[in-house]
Design a protein around this nucleic acid. Sequence first.
DNA 1: AATTTATGTCAATAGTGCTGACATAAATCC
DNA 2: GGATTTATGTCAGCACTATTGACATAAATT
Lengths: 170, 170
Amino acid sequence: MEADASAISGIVVEPITDADIPQISNIELMFFAYRDFTADADRILARLGFGRAHHRALYFVNRKPGMTVADLISILAITKQSLSRVLRQLIEAGHIRQLEGQEDRRQRRLFPTRSGRELILELSWPQSRRIDAALREGGQGDDVTVADFMRNMINPQERAVLGNLSTRQD
Amino acid sequence: MEADASAISGIVVEPITDADIPQISNIELMFFAYRDFTADADRILARLGFGRAHHRALYFVNRKPGMTVADLISILAITKQSLSRVLRQLIEAGHIRQLEGQEDRRQRRLFPTRSGRELILELSWPQSRRIDAALREGGQGDDVTVADFMRNMINPQERAVLGNLSTRQD
DNA sequence: AATTTATGTCAATAGTGCTGACATAAATCC
DNA sequence: GGATTTATGTCAGCACTATTGACATAAATT
């Protein structure tokens, strides 16, 4: 069966549902959960004139102090040209320092400074709190399923739109 | 206590750990899980000359056929100027059609075409399969915890780097 | 001495987002 | 019926993040 509008004007009026794509609601939850997860840090970054790329670079340097530029490029899966600007700005801002490798003097070992450490903690705390809360909030029963977790990661006021999806509007 | 290098050159050599940020490993898992989750669709999109913005717009139009431009702007949380380029390209490619609203003729009701439906299914299947597999793969015990799930979402060959993080390299 | 490796830089391009300004048509308000 | 608001669209300029390709330097390796 096909709706009239579809036959007439070549459009599809039926929403996709989990009958089409079994994990459709989890796909959606991933999208919203990640968006709100990153939004916490984005606000702080915007204030400082940094972006997500700075966050990621600073994060991994704090996570593995002394890593080389090549290590960082490999983990972030970006090109050295993409990294260079971001890294330069972090170095200029005094959040990261490069030290010549002791064994291999071609290498630039990357270390966070005190302010770089402080900044990554400031960026990570809201994210940690959001995850922690999402793991505790719980869902239907006692234990938190993956779907519950992702739903809990989403800002409460935004959770409403989830229910409105997958309905025809015509 | 502080390492010598730190005292000398103003750097921090200790990695951040979950002693600093309790949910640090889950923050990391979120980053990698989402990156691999989106990579599935990104490859298909690149082939067609589209980006993630096209994917998201097409997705929600398929999820709620007949939604207005204002609805879409609201869900995506972007400006109409940002949406316009993406929407125009999807319309030109024949994946979305706009129909004048029946009650309110200022509105442009957005519907997927057959090809728009097919494309979103093609984009969603790999993501659905990845989530489905991650939910089934399991972790330590029988049931899949949130951390297990996110770890399972990551491409197997990339899971190795997770263990190497949070160690000094100096 | 020749080659490879680690890093850096310059230039051009693409995708996605933003703000501000302005335009049009249709709905709504008074 | 005239004024205002709403839904949409478009133009221009800018920012951030990413890409590819080309070239350069210094240090390690063969």
